[in-house]
Every structure is written in C-alpha cells, then in structure tokens.
Simulated assay, not measured.
Amino acid sequence: MFRPFVDDFLACLRFYSRLPVPAPRGHEMPDFRTAVRALPLAGALIGLAPAWSLLAARALSLPPFLAATLAFAALTLVTGALHEDGLADLADGFGGGATREEKLEIMRDSRLGSYGAVALTLSLALRVGAVTTIAQSSGFEAAAIVVFVAALSRTAGLLPIMILAPARADGAGHAALRPFKEALQTAALLASAISIAPIAAGASPVTVLLSGAMAIGAAYATAKLAERQIGGLTGDVLGGAQQMAEIAALLVFAAR
C-alpha cells in the first residue's frame, strides 16, 4: 500500500512541477483514478517554494507586495506555469471563438491572445493582491495559507473530471480518468490534515472551511462554463479550474 502511494505522489510531482523527480516514462499525466489520493501532499510540497520565498523576503524587510510577488515568481518557476497556460488558452478559446469547433481550435493554438493575456494579468493581480493583504498581518500565516491553497486548488481543480465527458477524442482531457471513490476519500483526509497549517498559524477554522467550499465552487463553475462553451473536458479546462479555485480560496483568506 505504501509503495503505490509513493508512486502516485512522485507521478503527481512529475506532472505538476518541474522539480527534479525521476521520470522513467516522461512527464505524462498521472492515472488520476488512484493518483488523486497523493495530490494534496504533492501540492503542499509545491507550495513550499513560494512559502519559503515569502518568508525570506519578509525576513529581509521587503514590503508585503514585493514578498508576495516573489512568492508567485517562485511558484511559476516550480510549476512551469502549467495551470496559467491552461487558463490563458481557455480564455482565448471561450472569448475568441464563435463555435465549439473554433473554440477548441483556438485553445490548441500555443500563441497568446488578448483574452488570455487579460486572464493571466487578472489571475496574477488577484493572487498577489490577496497574499499581500494577508502578509500585512502575518508573514507566517500567509506562508501557511500559500501551502494549503497550493494543495487545495490542485485537488479541487480535478473536479471537472468528475462531471464532464471529454470534449475531444484525444488530448489531456480524453486521457484523464475519473478518480476512484477510495482515492478521493484519501485526498479529502490529506487536504484536511494540511488545513491544520493555516489554522496553527492563526487562520480561523471557519475561514479555512469557507476557502475549501469556495475553491470547489469555483472549479465547479469553471466546469459548467466549459460544458456550455465546448461541451466537455480538455486539459485547459483543468488548468483553468485550478486557477479559479486558487483565486477563490485566497480571496476568502484576504477578506476575513
């Protein structure tokens, strides 16, 4: 049981980050039927990079805005902007295409359009702004929240797999497999355990619970929008869902 969990954990790290994890089969999508159980732990580990960057910046007496900006710079380096790329493609496709086919074609285009550029700008502004607000009160609490939200948003970002059929006959959305119930239960337990970090750092348990609900709600809304726009799931939908979940959760903590 332990070895398969470790394999799932390493598969998630390989896919969701650019960390030097051995990749015997490349950086292919994990088998989410089981791998989702390890995703909160992998997400938390990914969140350590921006959290430590934030704490280091505050220790050097940099203001909260610069500390938050450096934190997301570190996160981008670790993840390779995986989810940001999905959000940009989603915005370009939904905003620039008139038909389902046009939207899907635009989403496959690697070039960045106006809608994608605006979406990326707003995503970074909202996340940096939220962490700046939190860090003004406590750098340690902000760092703990960054770790928790990194785990929460990546797990909630898989919600579209649960309710959507693939929009294409190929691609990441078609390859993504619906998680097993037992794996989802393990993921929920791990996410709950990681939520102790922001609570121990000073966040209200009610705020933590609300952030989880809002993250799930944002991912669900992204899935339903994708269903209306393109009739199903693609890899970009998963990226957009993660970004929306991350923004929603951070805004809850900033608004307390």
Rank of each mutant, 00 (worst) to 15 (best):
S138W: 04
C12M: 05
A117W: 11
V252S: 08
F15V: 05
T207Y: 08
L54F: 14
G240K: 00
I196S: 13
R168G: 00
T222P: 01
M107A: 02
A56G: 06
A223P: 10
L112C: 12
E141G: 12
L70V: 10
G139L: 02
E28I: 15
A81G: 08
G113C: 13
P179L: 01
V237Y: 00
I199T: 12
L158K: 06
R256E: 14
P50V: 04
C12D: 06
I106F: 02
G173A: 02
A221N: 12
L238N: 00
L251I: 14
F253T: 08
L164Y: 00
S192C: 11
K224P: 02
A188D: 07
L251C: 13
G129T: 15
T79F: 01
P24S: 11
L120G: 13
R33P: 09
R256A: 13
M1K: 11
R100W: 01
A11Y: 02
D85K: 02
T34K: 11
G235P: 07
L251W: 08
R14T: 11
R111F: 03
V149D: 03
G43M: 02
A219D: 03
A67D: 05
A74M: 07
A11I: 05
H27D: 12
A143N: 09
L122V: 15
L158A: 03
F32G: 01
A175R: 15
L159R: 06
G173Y: 00
A249I: 13
L82E: 04
A248K: 02
G47L: 02
G43I: 02
T99M: 01
G157K: 01
A56S: 11
T186D: 12
T121H: 14
G93D: 00
D109I: 04
H174T: 08
A91I: 03
S192M: 12
A125D: 14
A67R: 08
F9N: 09
A226D: 01
H27P: 02
I46L: 12
L122G: 10
A44I: 06
A130T: 14
L41P: 13
P64E: 03
F253S: 04
I196V: 14
L189Q: 09
G80W: 09
V118D: 01
A218S: 10
R100H: 05
R33Q: 14
G202H: 10
R256Q: 15
T121N: 13
I199S: 08
L126K: 13
A23G: 07
F2K: 09
I46Y: 03
G171H: 00
L39M: 10
D7M: 13
S123Q: 15
A81V: 04
G202N: 11
L225R: 14
L41C: 07
G95E: 01
